[in-house]
Design a protein around this nucleic acid. Structure first.
Length: 573
RNA sequence: GGCGGCGUAGCUCAGUCGGUUAGAGCAUCGGAAUCAUAAUCCGAGUGUCCGGGGUUCGAGUCCCUGCGCCGCUACCA
């Protein structure tokens, strides 16, 4: 049995959950966790919200409430959204909770005392009206290169050039619109160059990481690590634990990953075993796996391991960081500010969470950015789920009820059938590589197993669909509606095979569609508690219970409605 | 500007170490079947693998170059 600790990147609490979050770091993690639970591994799944930072603080000011109110609101709503998608974290915390504050401050202190933090003084823009230091992004002005208006402090969108905020002409605060003053401030920096050798040695042991992740890291390392500020001047954040440092807080991305630890502590406490978190975080046998979007790679593979390694307690370092790329929407980059996304809350008003799980799994941005379109959503549900899988289940069960008194019995040759090459005629020699060398159904099942292990959810989906196609073909070839008339046992054989195939699919598909598979199993009177190894355990018979369609088709009008809603823009923000 | 990635069928995408006639699903066309939610099954066509050059017995794959798109570029989080 393996011990695994899985995390999804903490989500920024300035809005509810959208499908980009789901595709980037939640669904893939949940599928991996569910698969491992079926295997019987000791696995916990931890996450939460990242509650601090300027955007939340500004939003709070606009609404005239405390930032904590905003963070708590979205934390709650996200939890609900995750529930609606059957994404089951063992704990969903938030970084504004007291425990997290204490742990983060200790982390800072330990790093400082170990000699890896330097203090520096620098000049920065300051908005006097809002009494706030301004991040580069919150300053606007005239670009010093192309002289056009509306350049931000970090970059000019017109000419694309990077800008040193201090060189902006006629700078003004994006928050108040007023001219900012330049003010001296002090910050603490993590001395990353001092970690370089250690990091390179550690990363050399991670050859099994995904290529996109390794590329990203190497580009950082090869540019040369520099010191990086881990504090900010803000009123909404974790105060740094030093004398005379009022208004200085930890930079959110310093404290956010620490949230994985504090969230695990919260989980342990809720379980009534406050030290249980140590069993995971302090045991070198634990595999720590961070699921996240590509934008988070450097934080989790450079800064986070560096910080972890200098604590007093022997924390484990990440075992794997299977980062996903981004999900686009109808061919365009998703953007919350342009309201170009699909909010889970909106989605759930119209469709079942399982359907989104399926579509995002089938089209996950595993190796490169992928595109979500409503038309594709409809196609995948109607074809893959409704027509191919749903119909296989329906025709099998209805047939058994109608012609075989609702029951089929195990046949002698069942193992042989599962070892026969039942699918090759539909494929030619140049099928995708993961279809090659598939001799029989057990090979396909092994392929699915391996795909889940390696976070290759798309491949798992393709192989499961291949199984359902085999079922439909077998049904057509054997023609039980003909054989039933002269040879009852022959029809029994066909239907037992199809039932057994569906039973195996109900296990194989559970990590992706747990509720739909539960429904499928219920129709077959199969138990809810099962494990991965049950795939091989053929029952003596199947008694079919009440039958209803597993899925239903999505009409064109429903899709048109979603496209309209997308154009209008959601109002849930 | 620098670094990295991407560009394959009408669409969404696979293509392992360089190896035979470049693949899947959807869409399209033709056929079969009638157990099933008109759901299924079989068959067929479709390609300047972004352009150009190079290495090689052999290139979608490796190298150079041009074009287009995207990400990162350390103070967005």
């Amino acid at each position: 049995m393996e011990k695994i600790l899985v995390t999804s990147a903490l989500t920024y609490a300035n809005g509810p959950l959208h499908i980009g979050h789901v595709a980037g770091s939640y669904l893939n993690a949940d599928i991996f966790v569910r698969y491992n639970k079926l295997l019987g591994n000791d696995i916990i799944y931890i996450g939460g919200t990242d509650d601090y930072g300027t955007p939340i603080s500004i939003k709070a000011e606009e609404e005239g409430v405390k930032p904590r109110v905003i963070a708590e609101r979205y934390n709650k709503r996200m939890k609900k959204d995750l529930d609606g998608l059957n994404i089951q974290l063992d704990n969903f915390s938030g970084t504004s909770r007291p425990r997290h504050i204490k742990v983060s401050q200790d982390f800072f202190t330990n790093l400082l005392e170990a000699g890896y933090v330097n203090k520096k003084t620098l000049n920065q823009f300051y908005d006097e009206k809002h009494k706030r230091f301004l991040a580069d992004r919150y300053i606007e002005g005239i670009c010093p290169h192309c002289k056009s208006e509306g350049a931000r402090g970090d970059q000019c969108d017109k000419c694309g050039k990077l800008i040193d905020a201090m060189s902006l002409i006629e700078p003004r605060s994006k928050i108040s619109g007023e001219k900012p003053i330049i003010k001296e401030t002090t910050h603490w920096y993590i001395n990353l160059p001092k970690f370089e050798k250690q990091l390179r040695e550690w990363l050399a042991t991670k050859k099994y990481w995904k290529d996109n992740v390794l590329n990203f890291i190497m580009s950082w390392l090869n540019e040369g690590l520099i010191e990086r500020a881990i504090t900010r001047d803000l009123n909404w954040g974790i105060p740094i634990p030093l004398e005379n440092t009022k208004g200085k807080v930890l930079y959110v991305w310093f404290d956010a990953p620490i949230g994985y630890i504090s969230s695990t502590m919260e989980w342990a406490e809720k379980k009534g075993q406050p030290d249980l978190w140590k069993k995971y975080w302090l045991d070198p046998e634990t595999k720590l796996i961070h699921f996240l979007g590509k934008d988070n790679i450097p934080f989790h593979t450079i800064i986070w391991p560096a910080v972890l390694s200098k604590q007093k307690e022997p924390f484990i370092l990440p075992y794997d960081v299977p980062a996903n790329e981004f999900l686009n929407l109808e061919g365009q980059k998703m953007s919350t500010s342009r309201n170009w996304t699909v909010w889970v809350e909106d989605y759930l008003k119209y469709f079942d969470g399982e359907l989104l799980r399926y579509v995002l799994a089938a089209n996950a941005p595993e190796t490169k950015d992928s595109d979500f379109t409503w038309k594709d959503f409809q196609n995948k549900i109607n074809n893959d789920l409704n027509n191919v899988l749903g119909n296989l289940a329906n025709r099998t069960f209805i047939f058994i009820k109608k012609y075989l008194n609702g029951k089929v019995n195990k046949t002698e040759n069942i193992d042989k059938l599962f070892a026969e090459n039942l699918f090759s005629s539909g494929l030619n020699n140049n099928t995708p590589f993961y279809f090659d060398n598939l001799e029989d159904i057990s090979d396909i099942i092994n392929g699915i197993d391996e795909s889940y292990k390696k976070y290759k959810v798309r491949r798992a989906v393709q192989l499961i669909l291949l199984l359902t196609r085999i079922g439909n073909r077998y049904f057509d070839i054997e023609k039980p509606w003909v054989t039933i008339k002269k040879n009852r046992s022959e029809a029994n054989e066909t239907l037992f095979f199809c039932s057994e195939l569906l039973r195996r699919i109900s296990i194989l598909f559970t990590p992706i569609m747990p509720e739909a598979m539960k429904k499928l199993r219920k129709m077959m009177n199969l138990a809810d508690d099962f494990e991965w190894d049950d795939i091989k355990k053929v029952p003596e018979s199947f008694k079919i219970g009440e039958v209803s369609p597993l899925f239903k088709k999505i009409e064109d009008a429903e899709i048109e409605k979603q496209l309209e809603l997308l154009k209008e823009g959601s109002e849930i923000l």
